[in-house]
């Protein structure tokens, strides 16, 4: 029992290292390219090297404020996200937390965590709460319809509903190669991820209605987005390949590339207002996903 407990603890440390590496590398690359892009438009370019950006991030982390209650709330909010990552196979072919319903649990965690967080804050503050938490909960629920349909479509397309199963079917080729129809689902999942973490594509990202000062609440949108990107890389891009024992590092590279490319692409080409974003998710993405679901069921043998 103690050995199991220690194994669980070490699995968490591996998971958190994996997430933080992807997050920081994505931040670095995204900020680096964004500042380069700004230089072309006449920005002076001070502090645009990778080292300068890294230094700035470290300083930002060291400026965290808050009271004891905030820190405990942060810890409680972080647990479901790390459990969600633990369900995914990251460092190797096998997931850290094995479960026969892992795919559904993952979706449930990602939808319900912001909602539970808001309810907890609402009850602990006697009916009050920061708009930041309310928006997070609303967005998680607003994207849930599309998310459920995307999940069902993926299961219909592949016949798998565990992350271990998804790894197994991608041993020789990525899912987007085996089933080109899944590219639509990939775009759908990335859009839902961006919507749920209210970043880039959706214009709310630059004005969080929250308390003053820099705290770990600012960390959650990025954490949410990274968890979704790890999910996407696992499901559609082959996950961690069995490649001379460095499959985990290959997966990190995939996640960073997808995260940065999707972030920059969406920032350059799209900027939806809050109401446009909800319209897009509910009235465009959802019918498109239902269409994909019907196609994937009508055409059996779609996966080669």
């Amino acid at each position: 029992m103690i050995i199991d407990f220690i194994q669980g603890a070490s699995e968490f440390l591996g998971t958190v290292a994996f997430v933080l590496v992807i997050m920081e590398l994505s931040f670095l690359a995204e900020e680096f390219f964004k500042t380069r892009f700004e230089i072309r438009r006449g920005f002076s370019g001070t502090g645009t090297s990778i080292l300068e950006i890294l230094k700035r991030h470290l300083l930002k982390i060291l400026r965290i404020e808050g009271i004891w209650k905030d820190h405990v709330a942060f810890g409680l909010r972080a647990v479901p996200f790390f459990i969600a990552v633990g369900l995914l196979p990251i460092w190797s072919y096998r997931p850290g937390i094995e479960n026969a319903y892992s795919f559904w649990i993952f979706g449930g965690i990602m939808v319900s965590t912001p909602l539970l967080s808001m309810i907890c804050q609402w009850s602990s503050n006697k009916g009050a709460g920061w708009p930041f938490n309310l928006i997070s909960a609303e967005r998680a629920l607003g994207g849930a319809t599309a998310l459920f349909i995307l999940q069902i479509t993926l299961v219909a397309l592949t016949g798998e509903d565990t992350f271990e199963g998804f790894s197994h079917i991608q041993q020789h080729a990525w899912l987007i190669v085996q089933a080109p129809l899944s590219i639509l689902l990939l775009i759908g999942f990335v859009t839902v991820a961006f919507f749920a973490s209210f970043q880039t594509v959706f214009s709310k990202s630059h004005r969080f209605d929250k308390k003053d000062g820099w705290g770990f609440d600012d960390f959650f949108p990025s954490l949410n987005r990274v968890v979704w990107i790890i999910f996407v890389a696992n499901i559609f891009l082959g996950g961690a390949p069995d490649f001379f024992g460095v499959g985990g590092f290959v997966l990190i590279l995939k996640c960073v590339i997808v995260n940065v490319v999707a972030g920059i692409f969406s920032q350059i080409y799209f900027s939806f207002r809050e109401d446009q974003a909800e319209n897009f998710i509910l009235w465009s993405l959802t019918p498109a996903t239902i269409g994909t679901l019907i196609f994937s069921l009508i055409l059996p043998g779609h996966r080669t």
């Binding site: 603890a9 968490f12 647990v79």
Partner: peptide, 10 residues
């Protein structure tokens, strides 16, 4: 106990 270790450490 495995999940307990994971959650507790987290």
């Amino acid at each position: 106990a495995y999940i307990g270790g994971f959650v507790f450490t987290c």
